[in-house]
Design a protein around this nucleic acid. Structure first.
Lengths: 241, 241
DNA sequence: GAAACACGGTACGCTTAGGTACACTCTGAT
DNA sequence: ATCAGAGTGTACCTAAGCGTACCGTGTTTC
């Protein structure tokens, strides 16, 4: 999934998958936006203003418990996806928080415009629905990983998913940050990262993690990485195959 | 959510939420079906033949790891929902297993017919999309519960969700079955059930669990139950409000 | 150059839950 | 009436991971 640049001529996989007619329909409504770390793009029980199509950066979708005492990441979105599931599924408001975790840039469209455009073009709407399906699979597999995976496996999964979405090699992340993302203890992340490093899978330095051996990391995940990723390439690749 | 019978005049909440025109469009294509325990309604990487609208019974959606070594429940479906997310989202084949866990009955429609009907009526399609959104929220909250909840909390959540979907009071379930559903050890379920019983929340007997105090169980869940359920009543209730 | 701060390594005790094993108790079948 | 089997209660040991704390080491700031 990391090397899909050629499929991504318009900077974002969903936009790239659109027919010329659909893209020309949508394009006039797209603003160019910058994502800054910790920007909040959607909030539970709030109306969604804009839907985002990232070019770069990492956006994460966080489930929040009824009483707001618990939070945990349900899935992440990058150049392959879009935010705004509640708008595409015509069920506002959002019931998750959506945050920028790694800064970047992309395009955005107003929720009302998107709804109008989906009504105008069923092929456009279908492209969005396909991404919703990939995201649903991703969330289901996050549930699976949380239920069955050890910390080091979940960490490896997260690193692979982040690496898929961040250009260049190496991720600028702190242990603290990863601990928050996985909902675990900071010290536990330190241990798990050392474990991965001792196997030669990654290279740790202060605030920076480089993936050395992706296939080794995938093995480490014991199958908890890959289902959504395979689906993504299946659904979006054929146009270019 | 348990007492929503009056909203459910057609036996299934999605069917009940349809306008008369949409229901009359769909109805000729609906078969009546019985669900037997352990029937497999969808399988990973297989084409979906039929989409089901349960009247009674409990259906669970299981995420499977890439290497098939791990499985875990991502969400459950009963009288309030429908199967066939991959068809509604136009992204076949399925990437989850879908099984009948508690027998019952309902209606079914062929995948091809459903696709055709969705193309004919956008309001029909929107009703299905709304359920997909509820299910997405449910899956995200399963991920949250798996990440943060203790066994007794996850068990209480599961019992509430099952009770929402099964008529009458009392669930016919074994500890073994619950252990499989939650992906935990059978002995752990026994302990957790005793814990819940000692608080007067449930009543255990051989192969049978009765919920005594629903609001107590909800408190026990510490917020991990309720987000998807509230959304469900918000999305589907207004027509009848 | 020194102080302030962010980040990372390590340690201790504790809780939760897994693995395994065995025994008890209903229930239905013969 | 007895037996087999399913379902349940309990126990022991181990592993994973949490809460907390403290200390080192880079990095930035003044």
């Amino acid at each position: 999934m990391k090397n899909a640049a050629r499929l991504n001529s318009r900077g974002n996989l969903i936009l790239s998958s659109l027919s010329l007619a659909d893209y020309e329909l949508l394009e006039p409504y797209l603003e160019t936006v910058q994502f800054r770390a910790r920007d909040c793009l959607e909030q539970t029980n709030k109306k969604v203003e804009r839907i985002y199509f990232p070019y770069r950066g990492l956006i994460s979708v966080i489930a929040v418990s009824q009483n707001k005492r618990h939070e945990s990441e349900a899935g992440i979105i990058g150049w392959e996806g879009m935010t705004g599931a509640s708008v595409v599924l015509r069920s506002e408001p959002a019931l998750t928080n959506v945050f920028v975790q790694i800064p970047g840039d992309g395009r955005a469209v107003l929720a009302g415009d998107l709804s109008m455009l989906m009504a105008m073009s069923s092929t456009l709407r279908d492209a969005f629905l396909k991404h919703i399906y990939v995201f649903l699979i991703q969330a289901a597999n996050t549930a699976l990983a949380n239920a069955r995976g050890r910390l080091d496996q979940r960490l490896a999964r997260w690193l692979l998913m982040a690496d898929d979405r961040v250009p260049g090699d190496g991720l600028h992340l702190t242990h603290e940050f990863l601990a928050f993302m996985l909902g675990v203890r900071r010290a536990g992340v330190t241990i798990a990262l050392q474990h991965l490093e001792s196997q030669g899978l990654i290279c740790n330095s202060r605030g920076h993690i480089r993936l050395i051996n992706r296939s080794g990391l995938e093995q480490c995940c014991d199958g908890l990485y890959g289902v959504a990723e395979r689906e993504l390439s299946r659904l979006f690749a054929p146009r270019y195959g």
